[in-house]
Design a binder for these strands. Structure first.
Lengths: 246, 246
DNA sequence: GCGGTTTGTTTACTCATACAAATAGGTTAG
DNA sequence: CTAACCTATTTGTATGAGTAAACAAACCGC
């Protein structure tokens, strides 16, 4: 009964990673880049200079740069130095990058783009889930839905249940890459939710839509699932947009 | 006229990254993990032992591990060591990971999953492109199409033009995350194409479909664009499946 | 003069070593 | 039996020295 970790275990960036120095430097620089403090093409100060400016060793600094480089944010070469890559090379769907982007107050355009992508992907995922769900999937979704109803979206537990619900749908779709994609976005959307509740009270009650979606998947009706998921995202977008224009 | 680098510049993993030691170690271990030689949950040998086994310094080895860790493949903690993460944490859409997966002879299931995702995303992208394309976009697509016709898909130049064509469509869709997603997949699909041609001769002529798609986008007809893109991917899948079962 | 080559300089890259911090697992006190 | 406390092991951080790559400027044969 320890083995269901793979499920609860949502796709948020590991808390442990930014507890070490290399992680926190990577995070800080990442946020600075995502926030536009360093623009594509800019070259960072040299290793020695920058690392001692940040009060860390060259080792830690270099490991941080390796992390950023692995995510496509920077490229470094001898002689030329380390420079911020073109935006087209950034792995915008990397969970850390999404988290950093939201940390740095994302542009409205970026949020709209994300919702547009969700609108493409998640209804399709819901449809697949309706075709392929197993009894176990249904049980998980039902449980998450119940938890969600009990706690409400205002609480931490409630949001966790919401994520678990959506995660169960993705798992039922039986497609690894699709799952990696959507759960990255879902993690980011958790941020928007927090971001949202930070400014306003709680918006419209999301439970009825979630229940409709659940029933469609249980009934094995792909088109109904697609439709309700579309509605659900449309409402989420509306809420978010309302929160963005106070 | 140097500023159009952002376009030719496809999203293949940088050749430069695996030329350095940390990069090549990361690549080797990445392929080993993707290929199943190390399973999720396995712990790697300790830093000192493993690094000297690989004939590299601990520094270089650690930087390689940071890269893998940034892509979600491994997690390391003091005392416990470095272990391969659960598959659900892997960033399956990271360009490097996709490349490594194909390097390690990907499973049929994985390829099918990728095509399923393409089938969801790319037709939608084509529809958006038909709505939003500018004159410049059209010019780029036209040019790429012409090049593609001149060289054919059997040549390196032809495949590059194909990628440029699809890239131009993605850019016309005006959605950063969507672009990041599709071009990652596109890079992977280049691998399948190579993989495909490695076993058989060239399959069906892809030009007519591409031209239809082009015309739909030029005409600004989203539904037609969606439809033709769907067809195009369907054929690509059929070709790939045929190549996989000899 | 002119095109290719060498040299030089700057930068990241690699290596080796030392020490610090964290923590799983055993040990002991209560 | 529980909880506090060691401690051995492993990753994390720091530093210094030396290597290799990339670019530019000086150089040299023609």
């Amino acid at each position: 009964m320890r083995q269901d970790r793979g499920h609860e275990d949502v796709r948020l960036p590991l808390a442990s990673s930014w507890r070490r120095i290399h992680g926190s430097v990577a995070r800080d620089l990442g946020i600075a880049i995502l926030g536009g403090r360093y623009a594509p093409g800019d070259v960072l100060p040299g290793e020695i200079e920058f690392s001692e400016q940040l009060k860390v060793s060259r080792t830690a600094y270099r490991e941080a740069i390796r992390i950023l480089s692995a995510k496509g944010l920077v490229e470094s070469r001898p002689r030329t130095g380390t420079r911020v890559s073109q935006r087209s090379r950034w792995n915008l769907l990397d969970p850390d990058i999404l988290a950093w982007a939201f940390q740095a107050e994302p542009s409205e355009a970026f949020i709209r783009d994300l919702f547009e992508l969700r609108m493409i992907v998640e209804p399709a995922a819901a449809a697949l889930a309706a075709e392929r769900r197993s009894g176990l999937d249904i049980a998980r979704m039902g449980h998450a839905l119940e938890e969600m109803g009990r706690h409400g979206l205002a609480t931490e537990a409630g949001r966790a249940a919401d994520q678990a619900f959506h995660n169960a749908i993705l798992e039922a779709a039986r497609n690894g890459p699709l799952m990696a994609l959507s759960s990255s976005i879902a993690a980011a959307v958790t941020w928007t939710t927090i971001f949202k509740h930070r400014r306003k009270g709680l918006p419209r009650d999301a439970m009825p839509d979630h229940r409709l979606l659940y029933e469609a998947i249980v009934a094995g009706e792909p088109e109904a699932a697609r439709q309700t998921m579309t509605e659900l995202i449309r409402f989420a977008l509306a809420d978010t947009e309302m929160a963005m224009r106070p």
